[in-house]
Design a protein around this nucleic acid. Structure first.
Lengths: 231, 231
DNA sequence: AACCAAGTTTGCGCTTTCACAAAGTTCGTA
DNA sequence: TACGAACTTTGTGAAAGCGCAAACTTGGTT
């Protein structure tokens, strides 16, 4: 656990209000786990026995409806808590969490949640802020689904991935994990066919490049334009 | 405030774990307000200076997108806390709250939130449970919008209103506040025209009755059927 | 080197649902 | 009780996007 401390100290807003020795206490109680790409970390409706912190990688949060259609509700970037059912007064996970790429996660038994919340000033507050951000995002997604056309929704989804999970390269901003047409369709309530047509067009227009399941955004401002109704 | 105590004691899950004298303390700090039908209680993005408990009536939670389209994300039944931005680590309201019918609300300054959460065992827990329920509903709405057709979404919306805000009458279950086609379209990401066609059909089929902005569900099980994809 | 699985592209017809339009109804209020 | 505002109904045409189908590309594996 020694190697982790340094990198943790800086990046983790969840723990940023903790003293160094408190942080050590917390880390000492955690278990570290590597999750390979595509594997589940937990499943919807499962007993919420643990909560997690994403150290490295990207987590995809998804649900299945009764007909078996998959819906992706959000992606989690490194540094965030997840699986925090307790913060929602729940004892099961409301959705499944999948490793969008290989992930390194810290794991605590859920029984420690109340401990942490009680003992460490600011821990709960930060957790609820995280919840608040997710609620905002869900709210936005509802608005988009309710009022926007597929093209706008896909443009927004790509932009969101870029902003939250992008890394700068010499050929534009690259989304940090593999993304297929199918996945974008599950994020936007569309079909992989329609998404394919849109991405092909945007590639022709040099708005983005996509190959090998990786997307580079070349011209974010034109993508922003496509986001608007009248475009 | 005396008259309230009795009715409150029973119904309010938010305070159900409080002792009688604690409850009195809490009530003594509240202000009571009547809000006429259609009037706002607070607006999206406003400074979250207060939080609320709905004693009587029904509150509609809505947002406007950049193009000015209204989206209704949920309705709140009597007995629930709302405007609890602090529970989401926010200092502005994430949406607007409107009186769907005349409402009676208790109001506390937001500064008391942390007080209550700290002092009254179970208050925070109940609040987070409420948040959790709303998150679940939002999740469901995202799934519906992403995967279901308009007819299914409208059927579900009517059923949800019936279950959460219905009162039994001799002519079926009546939704407890006025609901127009427009409102249903804003709940389902549809248009008032399409909703009108659906409701007319359902009325012909004796699944429901609707007049004077009031809807009675006559045959919930047939509505449930329409909820399914293959119907 | 060959093959398979996974992902992508593209065409075509069809359904759903919207947009626009216009008339009818009901409600509240002056 | 008359008027206007709000709400509803219904028709018609158009388009967005889906479903189905088939071919193609790419990457990984044996």
């Amino acid at each position: 656990m020694n190697k982790l401390d340094k990198s943790l100290l800086n990046s983790l807003s969840s723990f940023r209000r903790l003293e160094d020795d408190q942080l050590r206490e917390v880390l000492d109680l955690a278990r570290l786990r590597r999750v390979p790409t595509g594997k589940p970390i937990f499943e919807e409706a499962e007993d919420a026995k643990q909560f997690f912190l994403l150290l490295d990688g990207h987590v995809r949060v998804e649900r299945l409806n009764a007909e078996g259609d998959k819906v992706i509700s959000l992606h989690i970037p490194p540094g965030q808590l997840f699986g925090i059912a307790r913060a929602l007064g729940r004892d099961t996970y409301p959705a499944s969490a999948m490793a969008a790429v290989e992930c390194i996660v810290l794991i605590w038994p859920m029984s420690l949640w109340d401990d942490f919340a009680g003992r460490y000033e600011g821990f709960a507050a930060e957790a609820y802020k995280t919840v608040g951000q997710r609620v905002s995002e869900m709210n936005n997604q509802i608005m988009e689904l309710a009022t926007q056309h597929v093209e706008q929704r896909v443009a927004r989804a790509v932009l969101r991935l870029m902003k939250q999970h992008g890394r700068n390269t010499d050929s534009g901003v690259q989304i940090a994990f593999p993304v297929t047409r199918k996945i974008i369709s599950e994020m936007t309530g569309s079909t992989l066919h329609t998404v394919s047509r849109l991405l092909s067009r945007w590639e022709r227009q040099r708005i983005l490049r996509s190959a090998h399941r990786h997307i580079h955004v070349l011209d974010a401002s034109r993508l922003e334009e496509l986001t608007r109704q009248d475009a």
